[in-house]
Design a protein around this nucleic acid. Structure first.
Lengths: 133, 133
DNA sequence: CAATTACAGACTTTATATATCTATAATAAC
DNA sequence: GTTATTATAGATATATAAAGTCTGTAATTG
């Protein structure tokens, strides 16, 4: 069980936008070159973030992606959910639902991780990095 | 990102052994039929648990699998690690290691889940089920 | 010896992630 | 308006891992 590379790219892109250019537009070409991934593939990932209302996009020359005004509220969990979906990590193989104790246990553990991811805001990491620079 | 079915089978098998027959030997045939999975495939999964020292196996007629004497110490995390491996759920795609803040954040969240899984012992679930019966 | 059971390795199948290719739509610059 | 630039969408291809099968071997019991 691993987080997908798509989640990896999404998180790095969001942090890039938050740190380097919180207002300016950044083209997928730039973002893709930096992360050594193909622009069309990264584009698909970023489109998911657009649809979830985390970033804006504008076509045409000098177009690109930028954070939305409410970006300081965005948590790690928001980004992960946008890419991986929101379904739980475990589903009981048998027909013991909804009483499957194993599933209940797994879900309660998963919630612990999600609580932490929800508390981790993008803006906090961005601040840390800016201080370092 | 999902837990594998193999982890699902392993957890259910361990709970079965803990509840139904904490001492007796149970053949993979029985366990597989109950979970509607092929015996050879389940056998591969259970062999991992044997190698991790969680269960014993004995060949020959009336052979099968049984919990080891220290089974009351076994946690969910132990079983999951035996099947999924122990590597972390997230690896930074870029070469920012070991300072990648994103990775650090992801790992700290994962640890919250693991702490919970470590605290959840198989024996507690077994007790709950026995009371229900 | 014969039946039963676990174990091991090669192999196949299936599903999903990853990535590419091509075409279309929108916008800006000229 | 034309051209260049950029995002978006859909179809397709490739890679990787999970899930499962097949066959044979080893160990134990009766």
């Amino acid at each position: 069980m691993k987080y997908s590379k798509a989640t990896n790219y999404a998180l790095h892109t969001m942090l890039f936008l938050a740190v380097a250019t919180p207002n300016k537009l950044v083209s997928v070409h730039q973002l893709a070159e930096w992360q050594k991934v193909s622009p069309t593939y990264l584009s698909k990932i970023l489109t998911k973030l657009v649809k979830e209302g985390m970033i804006d996009s504008s076509s045409g020359a000098n177009g690109g992606y930028s954070l939305k005004s409410n970006w300081e509220d965005i948590s790690f969990l928001d980004i992960i959910h946008a890419i991986e979906g929101k379904s739980s990590l475990f589903d009981c193989c048998l027909n013991e639902e909804p009483e499957c104790l194993i599933k209940q246990t797994m879900l309660s553990a998963e919630e612990k991780m999600e609580d932490e991811l929800k508390s981790q805001k993008l803006v906090e990491l961005a601040k840390k990095i800016k201080v370092d620079i």
